[in-house]
Design a binder for these strands. Structure first.
Lengths: 250, 250
DNA sequence: CAGTCTCTACGGGTTTTCCCCGAATGTTCA
DNA sequence: TGAACATTCGGGGAAAACCCGTAGAGACTG
């Protein structure tokens, strides 16, 4: 399945193991916060074997029900975490971009959802046994872990608001604003945004159909709020209007 | 505001502070898992002052935007965590029942949502400074903490599925099954369930209107799946049918 | 105790939203 | 270039929101 596997099995450096920004992404949205500058590949501190893996577009990294043994950090590309119903319905619980973690939320012994590469993606895989060494990790790291988990939950809460009580326009606008923040883009007119996903992914994240997503984006384009240079690219032309739309003031 | 406040300010027992089942409920759904038997009032181990507070039905424990200084454990009653829109829309992010924690998910310095007592409720309040002592707490507790956070996130993911992709009937059925599990009830015919909430709370949790909730519960009653002895009580008469409904097989 | 008030539950009718189906257009890749 | 796929657009229909009204239970008042 996985193509291009390089395994590091270096000796532990003899010191207290550095958890290397094991920033606890427990399975929903990746949330890094200021974690970006924590390491970015400081794999070397880990006491156990870590592997670098590459995945093609739409390739599964792990699937709902698989035995859970590892968690992952995205180094390049993008990952979606989703749940599939028997009848084909799909809900995306979150996305992961470079610097973010996923695969820790294994209730019991199995993954509760499926992780797939949305584009060509490189990840680092860590065995869960790394977590058992949490005791010996630094206090700084541990409080960082808690902060990131809080951020995780806040992201999920925001997602709940969108799905439960926002209109279609509000959801689309909120989604785009979230993507701007997530990808480190400023909130200013003319900013270009690479979505790295198709309309179906947006629909399954927002609990809508692909048609509704298309229509709403077209509406925003017609209103001069957005530009759409390509299917996976968005230019925000009037950020203020987009924010108003997200807040239901349009 | 708070009525009946008793403050313990006992001397630290001179030992390593016992976090007393500080089971990390970070602001969304309370999730206790097997935490029920962890302590249940073992406040005595805490290094800092903890207070027992009582709240009346519909009284706010803290509000969205309040400065965040404490987290809470429910000892009796029930708590809802919700977000209010300016135009009156409301989304309930989760409920907390005895043994569960809330109020840890303060992104930054302010609470991100509002906590209200759904019925007469007793809680224990812990200052956030307790968390700073996390270092000195036991390894057992810390792994417990991580497990509970994972459970938290799984609950939120489940909620996302409900809001995003389930039909009205599926949501109601899933909600009732979740409540059964949450309140420690067996999944068997004839089980009585105290909801401790009105129809509006159910609606705001499931992203529906109160009319739709009423109608759907009536439908299930007519179908012989449920009995409704009181407005806040449900008797599950055909658990199998309820499960089928939750899975879209009805 | 009667009376009033409020909150909650529930039913019906209307309107809107958004899903479903079909088709045309655009994009990507072999 | 052609084939496969994704996106966009339009029309019909079903589901749920919305707006109405009714009724019952409980709380408060006198």
């Amino acid at each position: 399945m996985s193509i291009g596997t390089k395994t590091f099995n270096h000796a532990t450096s003899g010191q207290v193991p550095d958890m290397g920004g094991l920033v606890a992404f427990l399975g929903t949205n990746g949330f890094s916060g200021e974690a970006e500058n924590w390491d970015e590949g400081r794999v070397s501190g880990f006491p156990t074997a870590a592997s670098v893996l590459e995945f093609e577009r739409n390739q599964a990294i792990f699937s709902d029900g698989d035995p859970a043994g590892s968690f992952y950090k995205v180094t390049s590309g993008a990952v979606r975490l989703c749940k599939l119903f028997a009848d084909g319905r799909r809900q995306i619980a979150g996305f992961c971009f470079p610097g973010e973690y996923f695969g820790l939320a294994c209730q019991g012994k199995e993954y509760a959802l499926t992780a797939e590469a949305m584009i060509g993606t490189t990840v680092v895989r860590f065995p869960h046994s790394c977590l058992a060494d949490l005791d010996r990790s630094s206090a700084e790291f541990r409080s960082h872990l808690v902060a990131l988990l809080c951020g995780e939950l806040s992201l999920a809460q925001n997602h709940l608001l969108m799905l439960g009580r926002q209109t279609v326009k509000e959801r689309i606008a909120s989604f785009l604003l979230m993507m701007l923040d997530r990808r480190g883009r400023d909130r200013r007119d003319g900013v270009m945004l690479d979505l790295h996903m198709g309309r179906q992914d947006i629909a399954d994240y927002l609990g809508l159909t692909i048609e509704t997503v298309c229509r709403t984006i077209s509406d925003l384009k017609r209103a001069g709020v957005l530009g759409v240079p390509g299917p996976r690219e968005i230019v925000v032309k009037k950020i203020r209007l987009l924010q108003d739309t997200a807040n239901g003031e349009a």
